[in-house]
C-alpha cells in the first residue's frame, strides 16, 4: 500500500477520525486519556486493545506519532500527510 492509500484507509474509519479530533483538541495524550475521551465524550464502548490497534493504523499512516518520555508514552497528531495529499490536487489545479 502506498503512503497515500494508508492515509485514506486510516481516515476511512469514524473511530480513527474521532481519535484525530481529540488529539487536535489537545495534543500529546496517553493511551488512557484517548480511551477516556472516546468512552466519556463519544460513548464509544471500545476495548483498550481495539483503540490501541486503531492508533497503530494512524501511526502507520504517519498521522499520529508515538513519543516516549521517560516511562510515559504520549501520542501526537501530525497533519503532514494530510497537507501532502491536498497539495497534490491544489498544484494540479494551479497548472491547468
Amino acid at each position: 500500500m502506498d503512503d497515500g492509500a494508508k492515509v485514506f484507509k486510516a481516515l476511512a474509519d469514524p473511530t480513527r477520525r474521532k481519535i484525530l479530533d481529540e488529539l487536535a483538541d489537545r495534543d500529546g495524550q496517553t493511551l488512557f486519556e484517548i480511551c477516556t475521551r472516546l468512552t466519556m465524550k463519544h460513548q464509544l464502548g471500545l476495548s483498550r486493545q481495539a483503540i490501541s490497534q486503531h492508533l497503530e493504523v494512524l501511526i502507520g499512516a504517519g498521522l499520529v506519532i508515538g513519543r516516549r518520555e521517560g516511562r510515559y508514552k504520549f501520542h501526537h497528531l501530525d497533519s503532514g500527510p494530510l497537507e501532502r495529499l491536498t497539495d497534490r490536487w491544489r498544484r494540479t489545479t494551479k497548472e491547468t
Binding site: R26, Q29, T30, M40, Y72
Partner: peptide
Amino acid sequence: FTQEPLSMGPVTTAV
C-alpha cells in the same frame, strides 16, 4: 501530570 484537567460531562479528571 500525564493528563491535564479534562472535563467530560459529569466529571472532571486529571492524572
